[in-house]
Design a protein around this nucleic acid. Structure first.
Lengths: 362, 362
DNA sequence: GCCGTGGCGGCAACGGGTTGCCATGTATTG
DNA sequence: CAATACATGGCAACCCGTTGCCGCCACGGC
């Protein structure tokens, strides 16, 4: 009685192809990895046999000898954050174009998870892109010693970096607010561990000096809608007329929180966000925000990583800086637009408003 | 003169550890993979030496003999869609818990990209989760023959599936609209290739029968905000009072498009979306929508896949169904709330409105 | 004292491509 | 026609853990 159970579907190997094509396994191997090294007719024959048998080269043993897996890792801080979608696409598409596969790792905003995942993955990838890493500089440098690493949205000495032009973005936002007649800007800070948070505040300080606009900082708050809402609460006691938020999520939380307590945006307060996420366009009023070229970021980081993997020197001294632009919507308006109309929170808490802490503190 | 260039940082292997611990390589291997098989003191010594030398077992050669990589692939249709964030997290966390790594593949809404990426990755993973695959059933079954596969958000015969309770979600939405006095519901369709799109429409047909609500369908449209805006255009000619949109993005586009042409939501039209993405809470008015348990979906799919990898039978006949719930916000209201007020589009285009196609067509 | 049993460790083959080196055969050159 | 160069393909070692099998030794029972 014939055995109808299908064969164990053993994987087809170069040995199978070699037998069928009547050549040695090494020739089969070369037919794929170094076609110039074998007679073109032989190569063609081998390719046809391989096709017929359904052979595909197995990347595992290949990696064993070449120590190249053609896989790169992309580590992002928080997959929940829509900001990373563009980055992932950019990185993945450039990698795919060079026939590299991308492994995505979500660090879940935790430096511990991030380290563990990288340690587990490192040996199987040719390089790593760290997008908004939460790890320490020294930890990053340690990984960079073992594998090519490109850091995104952050500047780490001795490691190649890709960043967006935060100073320019902040500057444009400040100019925009200044043109609208604002002479105070409050920066609503995001996580202190976040590198962009630091540079945005410093850039604002600098822009404030040059443009003769007073600045101050409140926070840090969580970089989420809730964080923005909490910031709005805090602003009751320390009113502002112009706000630069660490990111769009927080800006949206601010709009919400302020609107809820009777403050009109942009009538009473102008708000500028960062990132130009989809939500910035959905919220009412539309959020004026600094747009970053996410796709280009991911793409640039991946491309740079790939050249490093191919043996390029990598660190070029200065980080690669990508341009940003200000997208003006409806959350910003001229300061005196409602001149004469008492501001709700001043009405609500005249005592507190009168005893404001001096601006440009911190 | 001593050579100060650091050594080539050769990877530490079991052989290095073996020499240092004065045992054979096989013993080192067993000390890690089968500790019970070696004397506990020896094992401890080996572990200490390994620690000192910085040895980590290399998953590549291990996979070569065990044919287990402890990596699973998660294929999603479009990383731009926030819906997948929760799924990815759920899958990744469950996998990580069992010490599996997750490789994320973005199919970019293209069945071609999807196939190519899977073919490239398949041999290096132990199993695959297909979330909202755009491939044909037969293509999916083909892959399922070669590796354990779990399909998410779709039902494919002979392949284990995890789906959300679309019929119940649609039913709840229809009941909600019915209770508000609506007796017509227009379904604004998403991509025809999308499985949930089909089942949502069929569920609405069924719910309409039972609840005595008339239904019709327009579309298909792209499952994006723009798609919703285009649908709004089309609705000018074929007005509706209650709309169920394929997803939140389209619902938001509808709100926008309708508002722009002077239709009040929810005064003139009630709109219900699908997914309960973050944006549903941000848009004005807040979107009533059917919430799906994304995290649980990803987690369930991954868990199921892992048990299959461990040798469990896998296909259990019927798909695993996860519960949904209706989140009521402000985009739905009683139909006669503004009774007596002429509806703007009827005013605008009386002729067209009068010659409406019969409802429950299609 | 002899044999059986179990614990422990080593040997060697294996998985599946890759590659340095050599052998053979053909083409080129003087 | 001899000498050299080049194209082509095979052999065998290698990458690095894993595992079947065997040998050695200690211990226990009779």
């Amino acid at each position: 009685m014939p055995d109808h159970t299908r064969p164990p579907e053993k994987r087809v190997t170069i040995y199978d192809v070699a037998v069928e094509a009547d050549v040695s396994p090494s020739t089969v191997s070369r037919a794929f990895s170094r076609p110039s090294r074998v007679n073109s007719e032989t190569a063609e024959r081998i390719r046809q046999v391989a096709e017929r048998l359904g052979y595909r080269t197995n990347p595992l043993p290949r990696a064993l000898t070449t120590s190249r897996t053609r896989v790169i890792a992309l580590v992002i801080a928080d997959i929940t954050n829509p900001v990373y979608a563009g980055i992932v696409r950019g990185a993945q598409e450039t990698a795919m174009h060079d026939e590299y596969t991308t492994v995505l790792i979500d660090a879940q905003e935790s430096d511990r998870v991030e380290r563990a995942a990288i340690e587990r993955t490192m040996s199987t990838v040719d390089g790593i892109v760290l997008a908004s890493s939460r790890m320490s500089d020294s930890a990053i440098r340690m990984f960079a010693k073992q594998r090519p690493v490109v850091v995104l949205n952050r500047s780490v000495a001795d490691v190649p970096c890709v960043v967006t032009d935060n100073p320019r973005g902040v500057r444009r936002a400040a100019e925009h607010l200044g043109e609208l007649g604002h002479d105070h800007i409050t920066y609503v800070a995001g996580p202190q561990a976040s590198w962009p948070n630091g540079i945005r505040w410093r850039s604002l300080l600098e822009a404030g000096m040059e443009l003769e606009i007073k600045v101050r900082q409140i926070g840090p708050f969580s970089p989420t809608i809730e964080g923005g809402e909490r910031a709005a609460e805090e602003l009751r006691a320390r009113p502002a007329t112009a706000i630069l938020a660490f990111n769009d999520q927080m800006a949206i939380g601010l709009i919400r929180g302020l609107t809820r307590i009777g403050v009109d945006v942009p009538g009473d307060v102008s708000i500028v966000g960062f990132d130009n996420t989809l939500a910035a366009d959905i919220v009412t009023p539309g959020l004026t925000t600094v747009a970053a070229p996410f796709y280009a970021e991911g793409s640039a980081a991946a491309r740079h990583l790939l050249t490093m993997i191919e043996g390029a020197p990598g660190h070029t001294g200065r980080p690669m800086v990508l341009p940003v632009r200000l997208v003006v919507r409806h959350s910003t308006a001229a300061r005196d637009r409602k001149a004469g109309r008492p501001r709700p929170w001043v009405r609500q808490r005249p005592a507190l408003a009168a005893s404001l802490p001096p601006l440009s503190e911190q």
